[in-house]
Design a protein around this nucleic acid. Structure first.
Lengths: 226, 226
DNA sequence: TTGTCGGCCGATCGCCGACAA
DNA sequence: TTGTCGGCGATCGGCCGACAA
């Protein structure tokens, strides 16, 4: 999964430790998610913590909801009571953290965007900087836009520039996308132009609703050490 | 669950032993359904069987597919190696097996029945003997038919007698039923008039399709002794 | 008697510009 | 610049009798 798209969907508040970073693992954070209370070794660190080192980071997304999450593999530090052995673990081939962020744009869906029968009102900035260039000499200016989601599925949208005053809209293909992704007003959509030039699309769901559901409500159990 | 509706859905080929009947249990039959191979006591009866007596029979239906099944509680016979003790087990309050079968009718759905946009062509015999009496003086003769499924849910159908030549049809409400129950051509529908006079409806799905699925492909592991 | 078909009518979907925030 | 609305044309669901198996 493309780390750029992952970060664009996760939002600017989300920061992940790099490979090799020293972190502190709170088993209690995971235990609160478990259905049965697990047993912990008695001698842990202060407040039941485990000093660790990040050995791998995987960017993933829920197959159902597209919800972003990351799987971090941790190696307990030699000094800790949880230290197992010094075996070498595989590192994922991950591009160096991009300095200049790729061109991306996020918009929270309005009622008109989410309503069936409506299209998607594309903010001008998004259409002009993220979407493929549109031939404004045509009447009306129209093109087909292809965008790949986190699973690699390609979605097809009709992008038209029309109305008085003129505005950018996604029409045909949009309602299918909304229905398949089960988007509602308040959810956000992310468009991103990758370094390879291809257009990607992601979703970020609003908080209300799925609390108590299966795959939601995960909170980080890791804190980065200074 | 009404035993009459259960038998109507299961079909005439299905016979269940009565309470108190002597049966032979084949653990191997169940073992083939298990994900892991279970361990059996070494000294079973011939071919690994267990002589038993039926102590309870429960008529049940899958909450998702309406598929009929029965739960039989067995007591190993005192002579068998599996005999545990002589404790009394509860008997379900079950009406005595009805001698004269209640009025019921089953029809395999045609393409026209299962197609969206189509209604359900009611065989004359079913309409005249199972459905509530229709006022043929009205023009057209129309009534609302209510039928209860295995879960107690009530379904509403518009029953009309029309066309040239005249025939009985279910129109409004039918497509909703087909969609909710996910019926396709080849599946069967059962109408039954219970002894209390109320109309019931059940489904019997065709064999092809769900093989390999979760709740299907159960075969009996019990044989009645002579 | 009843399965399938085409006709037809109404409901819904979805594209459009008008307007105003 | 863009969110919402009413209009309206295309499509679809679904009720109908005709016809034939």
């Amino acid at each position: 999964l493309d780390p750029q798209l992952w970060h664009a969907c996760a939002g600017g508040m989300v920061q992940l430790p790099s490979i090799g970073a020293k972190v502190v693992y709170f088993p209690q954070g995971h235990a609160e998610q478990a259905s049965t209370t697990p047993e912990f070794p008695t001698s842990l660190g202060p407040w039941g913590t485990v000093p660790c080192q990040v050995v791998s980071v995987r960017f993933m997304a829920d197959i159902e909801t597209d919800e972003d999450f990351a799987r971090l593999r941790l190696q307990p530090e030699p000094g800790s009571s949880m230290y197992l052995n010094g075996r070498v673990v595989e590192e994922e081939d991950m591009p160096p953290p991009p300095r200049g962020r790729p061109a991306s744009f996020a918009k929270t869906l309005t009622q008109s965007d989410a309503n069936n029968g409506g299209g998607f009102s594309v903010p001008r900035y998004c259409a002009e900087t993220i979407f493929p260039p549109l031939d404004y000499n045509a009447d009306p200016p129209v093109q087909t836009v292809l965008a790949k989601d986190v699973h690699g599925n390609v979605w097809k949208f009709r992008h038209i520039y029309r109305g008085t005053p003129r505005r950018h809209l996604l029409t045909t293909g949009w309602s299918t996308f909304v229905n398949q992704k089960r988007l509602v007003a308040g959810d956000a959509i992310v468009f991103l132009r990758g370094t390879s030039g291809e257009l990607c699309v992601g979703v970020r769901r609003s908080m209300r609703g799925t609390a108590g559901s299966d795959s939601s409500a995960w909170h980080s159990s890791i804190t980065t050490t200074s």
